[in-house]
Simulated scan of single mutants.
Amino acid sequence: MQLKLKLTAVAALAVLAGAASAQDVQVVKIGHVAPMSGAQAHYGKDNENGARLAVEDLNTQNIVIGGKKIKFELAAEDDAADPKQGTAAAQKLCDAKVAGVVGHLNSGTTIPAAKVYNDCGIPHITGAATNPNLTKPGYKTTYRIISNDNALGAGLAFYAADALKLKRIAVVDDRTAYGQGVADVFKKIAASKGITIVDEQFTTDKATDFMAILTSIKSKNPDGIFFGGMDPQGGPMLRQMEQLGLGSVKYFGGDGICTSELAKLAAGAKTLENVVCAEGGASLSKMPGGEAWKKRYDAKYPNQFQVYSPYTYDATFVLVDAMKRANSVDPKVYTPKLIEANYQGVTAKIAFEPNGELKNPAITLYTYKDGKKVALN
């Protein structure tokens, strides 16, 4: 009887210990925002997959911060690539008191959302938005872990002038913060390299018919076209270039068109092989952990990889690295640690300039062969 009482007491203590340890688990929410609906949903899904994979990996590490075991959860929002929805999503995450945010995808949504995060004191890291104006306000809550448009536009202009020896280029942009920004940089550097900008045309990020624009450009006899915009417009534009007999004209663009989806959207157009596009960061094969990470990603999310998921993965880890170094998940406490980041990620060694820009950003140029994206450098 006495032994039975002892065993019961031990069992009760075990239950109490289990309850105590369960109470010591703290749920920490990390926000993620990208277009999950509309023409750019393939980018958004890829970005969210990267952040989700990071959260799952972090939860296997039994991380303890401030004496509590941490369980991370992703609070995912859809901004549909729309600035108004972007600020609404940002405010929703502020109201939900998330610890930090990964996002947004588009510069046009990230720039206005950055003010919302700054005002509510929550840090955000984008691995996709590239307009240099993002970091100009000097918010201590804004970080970017990818090259900005100054690097992308300049890299493409140098390649057009120095490697391809082009002389006459037309420029088209979609009037978004991203498209206009990268086009402006390209124009400025191209002109400084002796390239004549023979025509400038504008479209929108909803358009699919570019015949009038391309007909006007064709009359100016260009040897290249630069497009500042995204692949839902880039693919149809390539098809229509072929239809109009612009099959020998080079086609340049930033990371917005530099996707595997572009090949599908071009639907067999031979002009796809004339594409030269730029991405911030190294190619997957040259990233410190790129190829091993991509195998894991593909196993979990087959046929969904686009461009930015390695960066959203790293962005999530960079936020948590700052929490660990501060021994706090409170944004007021850990945000000052972000600027001191020295984190070895999948994409690169991540450290920041005083304005939140990535130190020593790389860019990679790509083209397409047999429908597949291949690195040029």
Rank of each mutant, 00 (worst) to 15 (best):
L3K: 15
A11K: 08
A12P: 11
A14R: 05
V15L: 11
A17P: 12
G18F: 12
S21K: 12
Q23N: 14
D24P: 00
V27C: 02
I30S: 03
G31A: 01
G31P: 02
V33D: 12
Q40D: 11
A41N: 14
Y43P: 03
G44R: 02
D46R: 09
D46T: 12
N47P: 06
N47E: 15
N49A: 11
N49H: 12
G50Q: 05
A51L: 00
R52M: 15
L53K: 05
V55N: 04
D57Y: 06
I63S: 04
V64R: 01
G66W: 03
G66I: 06
I70K: 00
K71A: 05
F72D: 11
D79H: 11
D79V: 08
A80E: 15
A81W: 08
T87Q: 07
T87A: 09
Q91S: 11
D95C: 08
A96Y: 03
V98T: 08
G100K: 14
V102R: 02
N106M: 09
G108L: 11
G108R: 11
T110L: 08
P112Y: 07
A113N: 00
D119N: 02
T126W: 01
A128K: 09
K136D: 09
G138M: 01
T141F: 01
I146M: 07
G153L: 11
L156Y: 04
L156F: 04
F158A: 10
Y159I: 09
A160I: 06
A160F: 03
D162L: 09
I169Y: 01
A170G: 10
D173Y: 15
R175Q: 14
T176M: 07
A177H: 01
G181I: 07
V182I: 15
A183H: 05
I195H: 03
I195M: 02
F202M: 01
F202N: 04
T204F: 10
K206P: 02
M211C: 03
A212C: 06
T215P: 00
T215L: 01
K218P: 00
G224Y: 13
G228M: 08
G229A: 04
G229I: 06
M230P: 02
M230C: 05
D231P: 08
P232Q: 06
G234S: 06
M237R: 14
M237F: 15
L238C: 04
G245I: 03
G247R: 09
G247S: 14
D255G: 13
D255E: 10
I257H: 04
C258F: 11
C258S: 15
T259E: 14
S260M: 02
A266D: 13
T271N: 12
T271C: 08
T271H: 08
T271K: 05
L272A: 04
N274A: 03
E279R: 15
E279V: 13
G281D: 00
G281E: 07
M287V: 09
W293H: 05
Y297H: 14
A299V: 12
Y301W: 12
P302I: 06
N303Y: 07
N303F: 05
V307T: 01
T312H: 11
V318E: 08
A322T: 09
A322C: 05
M323C: 13
K324E: 06
K324V: 11
S328R: 07
V329Q: 13
V329M: 13
D330M: 03
T335G: 00
P336T: 12
P336F: 14
E340A: 06
E340P: 02
A341D: 13
G345M: 08
P354T: 02
N355W: 07
L358T: 05
N360K: 10
A362Q: 12
A362G: 04
Y366L: 10
